[in-house]
Amino acid sequence: MKNPFKKEDHTGLIVGIGVGAAAGIALGWLFLTNAGAQYRRQISTKLKEGVSDAAAELIDKKTIFPKKAAKVATDAVIKD
Rank of each mutant, 00 (worst) to 15 (best):
T74H: 08
G28I: 05
A73I: 13
A23M: 13
A37Y: 14
I14E: 13
L47P: 00
D80K: 09
A35Q: 15
I25C: 04
A54D: 11
D75S: 13
S52I: 12
A73C: 10
A76K: 03
L30W: 04
L32W: 08
A69V: 04
A35I: 13
D80H: 04
P4I: 11
Q42D: 14
K2A: 05
I17S: 06
M1G: 15
V77D: 03
L13M: 07
G20E: 07
L32Q: 12
K7V: 05
G36D: 03
F65K: 00
V19Q: 01
A35K: 12
K2L: 03
K7Q: 09
L47M: 04
H10K: 15
G36N: 02
I64L: 08
V72L: 14
V77P: 01
L27M: 15
K6V: 06
K67V: 12
S44I: 08
Y39K: 09
N3W: 05
K61P: 01
D53R: 05
P4H: 11
K2G: 00
H10M: 12
K62H: 10
G16F: 05
K6Y: 02
K7E: 08
R40K: 07
I78S: 07
D9S: 11
L27G: 15
K67F: 06
L58Q: 15
F5W: 06
I14M: 12
T11Q: 13
I78T: 05
D75L: 05
V15P: 04
V72Y: 08
V15K: 11
K48H: 02
G16W: 04
G24M: 07
W29E: 05
L13I: 10
K71A: 15
E8W: 05
Q38T: 07
K71S: 14
L27E: 13
A70C: 02
E57M: 10
N3S: 12
A56H: 09
K46R: 06
A73G: 04
G18M: 09
I25K: 02
A54W: 06
Y39M: 10
T33N: 01
T63I: 06
I25H: 01
G50M: 10
R40Y: 01
